[in-house]
Design a protein around this nucleic acid. Sequence first.
RNA 1: GGAGAGGUGGCUGAGUGGCUGAAAGCGCUCCCCUGCUAAGGGAGUUUAGGUGGAAACACUUAACGAGGGUUCGAAUCCCUCCCUCUCCGCCA
Length: 422
Amino acid sequence: MLDINFIKNNRDLVKQGAQNKGESDLSVIDQVLEKDEAWRGLVHEVDKLRNESNTKAKQIGVLMGQGKKEEAQAIINETSNLKEEVKKLDEQLKAVAEEREKLLLRIPNVPHPSVPVGLTENENVVHATWGEPNKEEWRKPHWEIVERYGWVDFERGVKVTGAGFPFYVGPVAQLQRALINYFINEAVKAGYTELQAPYFVNEDSAKGTGQIPDKEDMMYVIQRDELFAIPTAEVPVTNFHRDEILSEKELPVKYVCYTPCWRREAGSYGKDVRGLNRLHQFDKVELVKIVQPETSYDELESLREHAEGLLQALELPYRTLLMCTGDMGFTQSKKYDLEVWSPGQQRWLEVSSCSNFESFQARRMQLRYRKGEKGIEIAHTLNGSGLALPRVVSAILEAYQEENAKVRVPEVLKLFMGRDYL
RNA sequence: GGAGAGGUGGCUGAGUGGCUGAAAGCGCUCCCCUGCUAAGGGAGUUUAGGUGGAAACACUUAACGAGGGUUCGAAUCCCUCCCUCUCCGCCA
């Protein structure tokens, strides 16, 4: 959510930003400002009436105290109209405030000036590439490797739950656990505090990070208990400090959190969902930062570098994309995607997405910090995967397979695995 | 799940219809005094919104778990929900 005063003072910038993000209806921005004007007018009126009513109530109190009942009654008679008027106006005010809020929630975050303008993924800019994509033709896709050894059981996953909920068996289960450990350890070394978070969140939390009302369909909902299965640890972890005022010296706050993630992924099909490429449940180690506004873009770079460092340590070739305005999403102001090379599929797979939200999320969840003596400011929030597990597992299986079909263990994981081959 | 108690500012805790955005204490900030230390004195110290102002600030509205109701007036009375604690039950 943007600051209404910011929109007021930067109407064209906000419009341009929305247009660059591919929003078709820019009139929302004018509408919200109109609503805001109406809202301010009503606030003024209601405040005035309330003041009058408060003043009179006090007078009545004083008169009653002095035993002057008749005089008090006279004032009470005057207030009966007032009461209804306040009620009526207050209802109007609430209605207008709600409309204003709804409009406000439809306005996307403004892209940072360094973000390339474009509407589709074709306009994303390759920010960096690392390693040489392996083009050897004998390499098999990971689903063939795991099928041969029974390392991932898709069929039983379907039986027990449904498509997109596989079982990991034996060595691959162990590999995945090793990766989770490794990722968390690296983050802790880099100064992140490890967090274990709830896997379900309430409505306020889902709102706080912007999953609702915008992306409600992505989540599994437990209706009976009014809970949402988290689509990413970003949701519980960023909401950890919702409605709080942090002290300046606490910042930057950095958390690492491993959780499973649940996504409905309605409408996915074909090669996208083959094997481990896209699942309804997957594991992810997430990094979240809460920082001062002046530092948030530096923090984004260090977040990206940390995630890249993990792929480098695993010796997996990857490329980093700077997402263009149209491909980066509603809530972000700048976003990098890390894509690992999948030699068995001969394609790039997204394994991390590092974003700066500036104050967009923090404003909605009233996440603030105390600046200096008097000031209170909205903090900036960032997050990035470090990393998403199944696709890293796929890449490892495909990149570390040998022609005799054995799969080597990456050097940095040997300590966790206790052996050289899966 | 059953029975009871309770939810007030950074913390402890007073407040059962009006002068209480909230006593008192602790903590914190600034100032004064004292050669250090200890102690003492004074001032300040919730948040969000609106209006005015370059700003300091002033005025004003709202908020005492959340939402609704009664009343001229609610932290205080009534209803619903949420949460915490104690006892019982169940349980990794």
